[in-house]
Write a protein that binds this DNA or RNA. Sequence first.
DNA 1: GTGGTCTAGACCACG
DNA 2: GTGGTCTAGACCACT
Lengths: 122, 122, 122, 122
Amino acid sequence: MWFYIDPTSHVPVYKQICEKIKGMVISGKLEIGGFVPSVRKLAKDLGVNVNTVARAYRELVNEGVLQPIKGEGYVVRGIGEDFVDEKLKDLKKVLFELKAMGIDEMKILEVVREVFKDDIRG
Amino acid sequence: MWFYIDPTSHVPVYKQICEKIKGMVISGKLEIGGFVPSVRKLAKDLGVNVNTVARAYRELVNEGVLQPIKGEGYVVRGIGEDFVDEKLKDLKKVLFELKAMGIDEMKILEVVREVFKDDIRG
Amino acid sequence: MWFYIDPTSHVPVYKQICEKIKGMVISGKLEIGGFVPSVRKLAKDLGVNVNTVARAYRELVNEGVLQPIKGEGYVVRGIGEDFVDEKLKDLKKVLFELKAMGIDEMKILEVVREVFKDDIRG
Amino acid sequence: MWFYIDPTSHVPVYKQICEKIKGMVISGKLEIGGFVPSVRKLAKDLGVNVNTVARAYRELVNEGVLQPIKGEGYVVRGIGEDFVDEKLKDLKKVLFELKAMGIDEMKILEVVREVFKDDIRG
DNA sequence: GTGGTCTAGACCACG
DNA sequence: GTGGTCTAGACCACT
C-alpha cells in the first residue's frame, strides 16, 4: 500500500523506511502537517516487526522530520534540502564507479533518458 | 595503495572489497592471469582484518572471479558481463529515486557532465 | 543431541557440518520448511565456535539448501539429487582403493552385509 | 607416471602421498626391499614441491614403512595390516552415511559389482 | 612468504 | 532470542 522494502539488502530495514518516508516528504506525496500511517499499520503493510517501524520513526523524530503527538500519531514537520544533496552524492558515486569501469558517457545518458522518458508531468 | 573502503557504510566491508576488485578487473586495472595482492597485504593496506579480506576473496572464488593457489596467492580468472549490468541497475535505482523526489532531468545531466568532464585524458 | 564431528579429521569442521546437515535433509531427519538448530545452539552442542557453524550455514545458503530469516533462524529449502551421487562416488573411490590393495570382493560384501544387517527395523 | 594427487582436496598433499605409497606397498606394486622414486623425481612427476614429498617420506619413515639410506634413497621395509583395517573403516563410514540417507543395500551391491566386475585376475 | 581454518569475543539489526 | 559482520590472534599446509 505504501512502498516496499528489500529484506535482503544490507541496508537496515529501519534505514530503508526512513529513506522512503523522506523521499515522499520531498516529493510531496506526504503533506507537511499530515499524519504518517500508524506504526502498527505500516508494520503490517510492510510485513515488518512493529519495533522496526518504531525505530525508523524515532530516527525521523530525531532528525526533525516527524513530530510525535501523544495518543494520535506522528505528523510531518518538513525536511531540509540536505536529503536531496545526499542522494545526488549517491548518484555521483555510482557514476564514478561506472566511469572507472570504462563505461561510456553515452551509455549513461541513454539510461537517464530511459528513466525520465515517461515524465509527462514535466 | 589500492583503494579505500568506507567503514561507516552499511554495506559490509567484505562486499565493498568484492565490488572494488570486480571493478578493477572490468576496467583492466587488474590483469587476467595476474595476482591480486595477498590477503595479508591487502588487509594491512586497507586497515582491515585478515579474515575480512579472506572472506571477500573466498566469495570471489565462488563467483569464479579468482582462483586460489596455495602458497602462491590468488590469480584473476576473469569476470562476466553481468557485473556492469548490475551497476547500471544501481544507476537506474538512484535515478528513479531522484525522479520520485521531483528532481529535474537537467539537474541529473549536469551531474553526469560534471563527473565525465575531465574524461579527455586517455 | 544432533550429531558429532571429528576435530582430528583433515576435512574442515564447517564442511563436516554441511555434509551432516545435507545427509539429514536427504534422509528426512530434517523436514523441508522446518528450522535447523540456531547457530549458537548447534555451536554449543558440537563444542565448536559460533563462527564455524555460521560459515557452514552460509555455504548451505549458497547451495540453496538453507534460507536465512533474520531474527528467526534458518529454514530448510530442500536439496538436489546430486548429493547422493557425490556420496556414491566416494563409495566408488574407497572401493577402487581397496581393490587396488588386493582386497577380495567377498571381504567387501561381508562388510556391506554387516552394516546393513540390522536394517530390518523400519 | 606414478599416481595422481588432488590439490583441491582438504586432505594434505603429503598425506595423500603417504596413502598412495602405502597402498602400493600393500598391493605389491612396490616391492619390499626395493627403492621408491627419489624425492626430486616424485616431486617433479606429481607437480608438487620437493619439501612436500620429503615430508611424506619422513612420515613414512616414522611409521616404519620406509628406511632412508644415505646417499641412495629410501627403501621399502614393509607395512602392517593396520592400513587395510583403516581403509575398511573408511568403507564402513561411507556405508553408514549412505544407509543413513536411506540408500538401499541393493544399490550398494550394484556399485560394488560395477567396481569389481573387470577383476579378471581374481 | 602464501592461503585455509578455527577460536574467543565483540557490536549491530531484527523479532 | 535470532542471524550478520568484524577483530585479534592462533595453528596448519604448502612454495
